[in-house]
Design a protein around this nucleic acid. Structure first.
Lengths: 150, 150
DNA sequence: TATTGTTATACTCTATAACTATA
DNA sequence: TATAGTTATAGAGTATAACAATA
């Protein structure tokens, strides 16, 4: 009476979905002049506003050294600038340029279109059930991953 | 009367799920002596048996040169061997060692445990509905990504 | 002392291009 | 000619360790 095979199928499909979404993103990025790692920086700034490099390192789960390299590249390509921090002369505030903000807005729009393509066929009930289930799964996984980081 | 916000939520949750699963894998791999890219090779061999490097390049969507590097590293660390192809002297058959096969079996077991952790709380109906919805979404996404590759 | 960010160095993954051996 | 795989070279992302400036 085990649902084990069905749970395996659910995980397999989830893993394939992650693979497909990543490939979809990788295909779109070169045309924008971005890479997978750099777009994470742009997206985080789009959602949270100007950030210190230290904050970016924490959010992206990479070392400060790595952030230095990513921000260097994004400055060179015109997506962000380094602004002085108003209260801490050690820190810099990484800030989106107009171009960077425009690209981020385009990404958000593309994401909305993708959401419609993927979930547009679902009835309201079915969609709500899916979101509810997914929310439970993510809530169960989050502490597992975060605790392993300690 | 738009479900647009709910569809956005579904995609956001899906994207967070992909992030968490990847971090979970990245945490586990160093202890096994593997990296994210190398484990894809090991996993593919576990599922399909011995493969030519050309076949691996196609399956992993990377260039033959990259496969050379990955297989070199896996040979050095004892996960695979290069065996002569029986009918084509140009080709090599990348083959799991006993150690490589053992690690792959452990990965499969760990995946089964993760599936139970993530989906164990779901009733049969709810689980079946989730799998069905997920299957539809993946089926809709697959051609989008594959066609973009052409 | 602790924190922010950098320079120095090294490893992994990836790609393109030119090449060898075989089909 | 075409295919399988390698050598050569280069760029991106990542990490650790040592350091400077500031808090």
């Amino acid at each position: 009476m085990s649902d084990h095979p069905l749970r395996i199928a659910a995980l397999d499909l989830t893993l394939e979905l992650t693979l497909l979404l990543r490939r979809d993103l990788d295909r779109a990025l070169p045309a924008l002049g971005l890479t997978e790692s750099r777009v994470k920086v742009v997206w985080h700034l789009h959602q949270h506003g100007p950030c210190t490099q230290s904050a970016l390192a924490g959010a992206l789960a990479v070392t400060p050294r790595t952030v230095t390299g990513l921000v260097d590249a994004l400055v060179d390509t015109g997506f962000v600038t380094r602004e002085p921090h108003p209260h801490d002369r050690r820190a810099t505030l990484v800030t989106l340029t107009a171009h960077g903000a425009g690209v981020a807005a385009g990404l958000a729009e593309g994401q909305g279109q993708l959401a419609d393509q993927l979930f547009g066929d679902l009835t309201g009930d079915r969609l709500a059930g899916f979101v509810s289930t997914l929310d439970g799964v993510v809530s169960r996984l989050r502490p597992l991953v975060d605790e392993a980081a300690s």
